[in-house]
Write a protein that binds this DNA or RNA. Structure first.
Lengths: 261, 261
DNA sequence: GAAAGTTTTTGATCCTCGTCAACGACAAAA
DNA sequence: TTTTGTCGTTGACGAGGATCAAAAACTTTC
């Protein structure tokens, strides 16, 4: 996954990764870590929680947080572990997944730059977050962040709106999982991904898919084989074109009709 | 649904419905409405958002809100309509469902006393809320409530925690919908309902089910027939007993094993 | 109490999607 | 270059749950 093609893609999509960050080992993975936060230079501060802050409030954030990089395939945090930190994703893409004891897996979402992780204030992480591409996060200690929330109602309000939105998306995903056919699921997924990229880099028919077919299947309640079959069928019917790093949507209208609410 | 048996059940479960409330017609349904809120007498104020308020703050709540009753089968609000109000359910049970254009339906949840409706601050309601039993709500104008939020950080914080919890439940439901067999879905549903009743009236093996098999099917991504077959099978295997108003759980352990995370 | 409408149950049949197996494409490692 | 591993694709087959149909149980209405 950490290939040249993918790295180029990621940088195109999410902006160049900071080159001069120290690489230090952490929790079994190489992790690039820079001491401060440098919120002022943050490329996505307008799209994330931070946009609720006054310039001087960034300083407080700076104290309790630190910027941190993760290579592709590394784990940011793991389901069941004590939830010591909350995160703000600034670059890259993550897979958020829940594991059943027998190995079945449900991907509950894919995180993109600007997404906040840890909205659920539970004592342990309820899902595992893995980097699909090299990723960059702002990490805050949970307690410090929680105290800051009590101090900054505007930040809390902003977070509340993000949580509300997340909840709405989760409920929409319930419809997809519970009441849609395999073909409709794929269509809804592609249209949804397109919409998310549009927020970051403007609308395009080119939809990068940094996750594997297995990930997509585990997100939609399907098997790898069904995902593959459906996507090749859509390609045969000229609805999409499968490219090395994702898909290009040829018939967006048809896809949107399939995914229709 | 609005039968003697059910009414008795509901009153047993959720406390006696206020007898001396006026019954007035509203949006095609008979609606019992009392002018003020009477938060002090509220039976579930400790379990709902209100518990974040100081005694004097109840007065503000009183101004922007009103208590309102709905008979079984009536609609509290409808998907797609302008979202003018938010609600706090104080008695009864609601079905929250999303409808697809072709008639397929996904029930995104069942609301119980203490639940807050309208956490998603969208301009229109994203799902329809129907009363499964006679129900009582506190209704607040969205704008008034939103202003109050900016004024009362503790209330906002409380609401945030509720939204977080809802989000966690929604993600758990994704696992159920995406990665569980019909039998496991039913088991998870029954265990989940039991847990919710336990919060209100203490643990019991008697689980009232105010919703129909169709509602359960639409909640779990199954058909009525499959729900019925699975429940009769569980009854045959002495895991549950089907009673007129719901079920009694004979083998809770087995059910919990089936529903295991 | 009879009649009409719902809801639940049961049976027979069908079909979508999962399972199992194998192969090809591609990348990383040796 | 060969080897190894991961990922994606394709085919054959089967099972779990959907669909269709009808009867039974229960509610509500008259």
């Amino acid at each position: 996954m950490d290939t040249l093609v993918d790295k180029a893609l990621v940088e195109t999509v999410f902006g160049r990764l900071d080159a001069n960050t120290r690489v230090i080992p952490c929790s079994g993975h190489k992790v690039a870590q820079s001491p401060g936060l440098d919120c002022c230079d943050c490329e996505i501060k307008d799209q994330s929680v931070c946009c609720a802050l006054d310039p001087d409030e960034f300083e407080v954030l700076d104290k309790i947080g630190r910027s941190q990089g993760y290579p592709a395939k590394s784990t940011i945090f793991e389901q069941g572990r004590e939830a010591g930190f909350v995160y703000n994703l600034t670059a890259g893409a993550l897979r958020l997944s829940k594991l059943l004891p027998d190995g079945r897996r449900q991907v509950v979402g894919f995180a993109m730059p600007g997404d906040f992780l840890g909205l659920d204030f539970e004592p342990t992480y309820l899902y595992t977050a893995d980097a699909l591409t090299p990723a960059k996060v702002c990490q805050f200690s949970r307690t410090g962040f929680s105290e800051m929330l009590d101090d900054k109602p505007r930040l809390l309000r902003r977070l509340m709106n993000m949580a509300s939105h997340e909840l709405a998306l989760a409920q929409e995903q319930m419809v997809v999982l519970g009441r849609r056919t395999a073909e409709e699921k794929i269509a809804a997924f592609l249209v949804g991904m397109r919409k998310r990229y549009a927020r970051i880099q403007g609308p395009s028919v080119h939809v990068p898919l940094p996750m594997t077919r297995l990930d997509i299947g585990d997100y939609l309640g399907l098997t790898v084989e069904t995902v593959s079959r459906m996507m090749t069928r859509m390609a045969r019917e000229k609805t999409i074109v499968i490219v090395p790093d994702g898909v290009r949507l040829l018939d967006v209208q048809r896809l949107e009709r399939l995914a229709e609410v």
